[in-house]
Design a protein around this nucleic acid. Structure first.
Lengths: 199, 199
DNA sequence: CTTGAAAGTTCTCATAAAGTTCTCTATCAT
DNA sequence: ATGATAGAGAACTTTATGAGAACTTTCAAG
């Protein structure tokens, strides 16, 4: 359990490492927190290490390493900023941390692993995970998990037509949209998120 | 069996922790309940602790911790199975769960919001979040955050050439790979994950 | 390989801020 | 009446925060 300033120091260290690629000096932390005494900063760093959030190499300059934990065991990562071609990383002022559980969690949700390339032009690749919210209805343009004739499940864009029929539209130039009678389609859920892990 | 006001205080504490990530001060609770005496609040907090609803670290500022945490706070979603065009959802036996923190969390990681289309063919779209692991070196084919001339940050595939030069390769047919002298490039990190939220 | 500046470590001191313990008063239902 | 519930506030203790001196170790320049 860190105190307020200790937490400030921890966040500073974390962002500093992400931005610079190496840990800050005590004096740099002090500057960042508006403190003049590096002795005080040292005390904070020790507390953070004792809390298990960083690893220390005593004596060594910049001798801190992050550990893969966050305060409170919460699944949060620092949101450093935006990256765009042609500009350095622009800090996002309003939001400092992204909470993975808030990003994806919700009632009636589950995850599916995607196989195939039918949604590749929508940025959903083979092997990706999609977060699906179970829901019997969807809006036009939603990406849905649709069960066709109670046999085939597919991941497609959906469009409800005037005549009541339903068109499932793949995001892949090699595939064609197909229109079905509404009774042949059952919507199992709507895609609300997508994630991918590079190994 | 808390009294009415004790229950009020408990609810306030719970909400406060959910909102701020740390426990409130006695004075903050007092303010929230419209009480002026922190002595009174202290009595309530003690009662709540005696009832086993929170854990106290005596003396410590903000020294409260929730107990009996609802498991709803865990960042896991059920992994139902695979979805592929042409087949029903193939249930994965043993209702697996996917832990978002394990999926993305790790030391030295941070998140960037992507702007632009330079990696669109790699399934990284404008507005996506990428999880970056800070690391000064990358392997061929990794997607990296590269700082060019200490000025421009970009997201590209990387290739190390025989002669020591470095080629940054966009995943967008409209853009061309460019080769740079190694001293012009600094690798800020390697993309280890990507996520997107549909609203 | 030496050496000195820079960085980390260990203290002590001071003050502000927060928690703890009291006592006192008032209301209200039994 | 009596005990449970509410609240105020004073007095006191402990933490949290910060400054800075003195010292040791690291690191890089020569």
């Amino acid at each position: 359990m860190l105190s307020r300033r200790e937490e400030d120091a921890y966040r500073f260290i974390r962002d500093f490492i992400a931005r610079h690629g190496h840990a800050p000096l005590l004096e740099e932390i002090a500057l960042g927190l508006g403190i003049r005494s590096k002795g005080t900063v040292h005390r904070y760093v020790q507390a953070i290490a004792r809390a298990g959030l960083i690893e220390l190499v005593p004596g060594r300059h910049r001798g801190m390493r992050l550990r893969g934990q966050t305060p409170g065991g919460k699944a949060t990562l620092p949101l450093l900023g935006r990256i765009a071609a042609g500009q350095p990383i622009a800090a996002i002022p309003d939001q400092e941390e992204i909470d993975l559980s808030e990003f994806f969690m919700g009632p009636n949700r589950f995850v599916l692993k995607v196989q195939g390339d039918s949604m590749i032009d929508a940025g959903i690749l083979d092997g990706d995970m999609v977060v699906v919210e179970q829901r019997p209805r969807a809006g036009n343009g939603d990406i849905v998990v649709a069960l066709l004739d109670n046999e085939e499940a597919t991941l497609k864009y959906i469009r409800h037509n005037r005549d009541g029929s339903i068109t499932l539209i793949p995001a892949n130039a090699a595939l064609r949209p197909i229109t079905y009678a509404p009774e042949r389609i059952r919507i199992q859920g709507v895609v609300v998120g997508q994630m991918r892990s590079y190994r």
